[in-house]
């Protein structure tokens, strides 16, 4: 009985120590990535290659999702607004929802499941097949050469993808409400232009997506780097990347929104 309690306690203690140790390891990994970023900018073509890869990987899914989210927003918004006789405000509604929330958040969730998981799997496999070790043996620092460019590539492409998502979404809203339902086109655009504030809405949306980009790529790269060098290890890490970064996005979004749009 006592023995069992002691064993249970030991398991709990082991878990706690492990998590704290992993957190410390992750922080160290993240600071090293930042410290060794010089390579990513000095040899910017390495970073451009990663922007291209993450961008290409995510572009189709971002465009298609953006279009549909915008169309749904248009439909729902029109249904509600026309009851109050202000159907033209639907442009404002679509644009604000996208730039403030849905653009950064949904684009980041898609980015995590598409590009983030691919990054984890790639790094995990590079480690499992000793490519990282081989680099280390050739006196090339893998954090500077492999991790850094992927990190900055992700951080740079995330806001671009979010902007793409919002732009396509606004176009989707326009298609449904103006082209299909017949809301007045002039009012749709002019109300949108009046209501969307550059500083308050666009800049805040961009800040959000940069923060999400940092979180997703940092999590994805760490999970890949830390993955046990086996098939199960890499697949487990890939799953963890998607789950952890999705939760991180939603949690960070709440915090950022609370700071940004308080009383606005």
């Amino acid at each position: 009985m006592v023995e069992r309690a002691v064993r249970g306690l030991r398991v709990v203690g082991h878990r706690v120590v492990n998590s704290v140790w992993r957190l410390g390891y992750a922080s160290r990994f993240f600071s090293l990535t930042l410290l060794k970023s010089a390579t990513s900018f000095r040899r910017f073509h390495l970073t451009i290659k990663e922007i291209y890869f993450t961008g290409v990987l995510s572009l189709i899914i971002i465009i298609v999702s953006g279009l549909f989210v915008g169309m749904v927003l248009g439909l729902q918004g029109y249904e509600t607004l026309q009851k109050y006789g202000s159907a033209e405000a639907v442009g404002t509604l679509v644009a604000l929802s996208l730039t403030r929330e849905l653009g950064p958040v949904v684009a980041a969730l898609l980015f995590a499941s598409r590009a983030g998981s691919a990054m984890t799997a790639e790094i995990g496999l590079m480690k499992a097949t000793e490519q990282i070790a081989a680099m280390e043996m050739m006196a090339v620092d893998p954090i500077a050469r492999v991790i850094g460019p992927r990190f900055w590539g992700g951080v740079i492409s995330m806001p671009l993808l979010a902007a793409m998502f919002s732009a396509v979404g606004v176009f989707g809203g326009y298609l449904i409400t103006v082209v299909l339902i017949g809301v007045d086109e002039g009012a749709f655009w002019s109300q949108m232009q009046n209501a969307v504030d550059f500083r308050q809405d666009i800049v805040n949306g961009v800040i959000k997506s940069v923060v999400f980009g940092v979180a997703v790529t940092a999590i994805a790269l760490f999970e890949g780097y830390d993955a046990p060098p086996t098939a199960e290890g890499v697949s487990g890490a890939t799953t963890r990347t998607v789950v952890t970064s999705s939760l991180a996005i939603l949690g960070l979004d709440f915090v950022l929104t609370a700071f940004m749009f308080r009383g606005a």
């Binding site: 496999l125 000793e130 490519q131 081989a134």
Partner: peptide
């Protein structure tokens, strides 16, 4: 610096895929 003067052949090659 020392490793630049060393070459290591890994068991499975470890080529960059």
């Amino acid at each position: 610096e020392m490793r630049r003067k060393m070459g290591m052949l890994f068991q499975f090659g470890a080529l960059f895929t």
